[in-house]
Design a protein around this nucleic acid. Structure first.
Lengths: 340, 340
DNA sequence: CTGAAAGCGCTTACAG
DNA sequence: CTGAAAGCGCTTACAG
């Protein structure tokens, strides 16, 4: 019922091996034989079976890409740049989410024969996932994701501390002294909160713990953190002395914060200045104008792919490489001088 | 070098078939044998080889999902709901873009043995892709995508004409008579432009062709149409009598239009009202407040998955099903009474 | 340059 | 309930 290489061989009156040679572009095949095989393929509509090829070659020429939330345009952009770079290197990519509700989808990639290597974009911080990771035979690379203890892997990241420092320094220069911080509960944000504390100390400011809010993890509604950002602001505003500026650990949180502030009658930036992180697309919309820390997503995706591909190509050799890129502060209209 | 079912069998002192039976949860296996096998698997770190399984079972238990632009959150949300619904049905999903620059990635899915079925989300309107589609042996389903002539496939769509009509009627009720239309060059938008003409005719209004703009196709920069929306507005404003309202065929176009209008000194909605299509997440941000036509993305993804899965389960039987859902107009603050 | 043989790692009947 | 045999659709040496 299925058209196989064997049917092609019979149709073209050659052997299976010859068909295989044509398929793989092996130059040993004589030109007229090649044409005959190609014609036969066309005629009977043959398509090579990927599973059989993967089985015998012991590689799938496929990279598994695992993102934390596919609805997040940030993940989407990284995934796209990975797909493009992979394709250039001859690899297909299959995209999966770290965890779909119910079960960890990413495990589907891990069985041998699905993907030759894995790229994690974002934070695979679920404990059970971590355990699995350590046992995965395929090479792994991380992008926009802190190094996992116990896993030697290539990685590409922005220097998060520097990013946060840029943001805080900008606020301090504008005269802000009382600065709040909101971050998602997920582990990824921890690094940014730590950066916040460090940057505040560097600036000689003390951190008011009531102004440091970790939000609930994201739910299944089509919201990427704006709701969490809103309620975090509500919590901050309950403090005796609300801050004149807020650092939000990602842009969606910042959006929610902006919304909540304005609904409370507080102008951004006239009453409260706001800085985000990531420079996602919404940050640049003229009506939003969010000051934020830019991550070069496309570049990061390209670099991580190159690292992983070269590891697959030259196996076992060089030690893991860790690329750290410099982030950049994009100043827009959500930050201004501290009110007196 | 690789751990196989055979190593497990030796380790547990049983036959390969018994291991296989345990793997597939076949209840014929005695409990203590089962435990012994499970222990052996754990001990030597065996993972089943997906390629081998796929080859022999002749199905991959995988659905290929092809979206037009993974950076688009709209695609992301549909993809996510498909992944969740698939997972519930026991299928993994692999996500691919219709075309990455360079070559059509989606073709990677098509070779037999990669995916048992394909879901296209968005517009696979590239000619070469269409041709390939017709020859694909796997069942195909479409979501948010017009039916392709010559392909009998299940599909889930919103009634686009009704959506546009809702938008235009809303504008007409607000007193608008001169209404422009901007849409992307891609084929998908054609249906919405056609809907626009129809709705205008229904309302007894004539369409000023200088106010109907088809934009350039999207480039590779991290822009989803806002730039195109801006230049479309610039073009519209060159007309003798600029419209008092603009229908944009998607929300990103609308965002760009909003930006361009305000930069020109035209208030939204005080001078020009603006309606989008899709109800993407940005539309709901308080600072944006875009009136737009809502598509139930999560529901659509779930439905299309169910259609495809049931076709895979009960092969060859029933005729293709075409589900048409009613869209809904979400009125926000980008539309208002027509200025005198 | 072409063909026959073995094998990739599983599952699937079918004996025992 | 367990095991030996055949086969899924390819590729890979290796003869000819």
């Amino acid at each position: 019922l299925r058209v196989t290489i064997w049917d092609v061989a019979r149709e073209a009156a050659v052997s299976k091996s010859t068909v295989s040679n044509v398929l793989r572009g092996n130059p040993v095949v004589r030109e007229d034989t090649r044409q005959a095989v190609l014609d036969a393929i066309e005629r009977i509509g043959f398509r090579p079976n990927a599973a059989a090829r993967t089985l015998v070659q012991r590689r799938s020429m496929t990279l598994g890409v695992v993102v934390s939330d596919i609805r997040d345009p940030f993940d989407g952009e990284i995934a796209r740049s990975i797909a493009i770079a992979s394709s250039a290197a001859g690899y297909a990519t299959i995209l999966s989410e770290l965890t779909a509700p119910g079960r960890p989808t990413y495990l589907d990639l891990v069985p041998a024969g699905r993907a030759d290597g894995l790229i994690f974009a974002g934070w695979p911080a679920v404990d059970s996932v971590l355990e699995q990771l350590v046992r995965t035979p395929q090479p792994i690379a991380f992008v926009s994701c802190r190094p996992i203890p116990g896993i030697d892997a290539d990685s590409v990241n922005v220097d998060e501390r520097v990013g946060v420092t840029l943001a805080i320094r900008h606020l301090v220069e504008l005269g802000h002294r009382s600065i709040g911080c909101i971050a998602r509960a997920e582990d990824q944000a921890a690094e940014r909160v730590a950066g916040f504390r460090m940057a505040m100390a560097d600036a000689g400011l003390t951190v008011d713990e009531r102004l440091v809010i970790r939000t609930e993890p994201l739910g299944e509604d089509a919201d990427l953190g704006t709701v969490a950002g809103s309620s975090a602001v509500a919590e901050i505003l309950r403090a005796d002395a609300p801050p004149t500026a807020i650092f939000a650990a990602d842009d969606y949180l910042a959006m929610g914060a902006m919304q909540a502030l304005e609904e409370t009658g507080l102008g951004v930036p006239s009453h409260v200045s706001l800085v985000g992180f990531d420079d996602s697309r919404i940050a640049g919309l003229s009506r939003i104008g969010l000051t934020t820390v830019h991550q070069p997503r496309a570049l990061m995706g390209r670099l991580v792919t190159q690292l992983l591909v070269s590891r697959l190509t030259a196996p076992g050799s060089k030690p893991p490489e860790s690329v750290i890129l410099e982030p950049e502060l994009i100043v827009r209209s959500s930050t201004g001088p501290a009110p007196r």
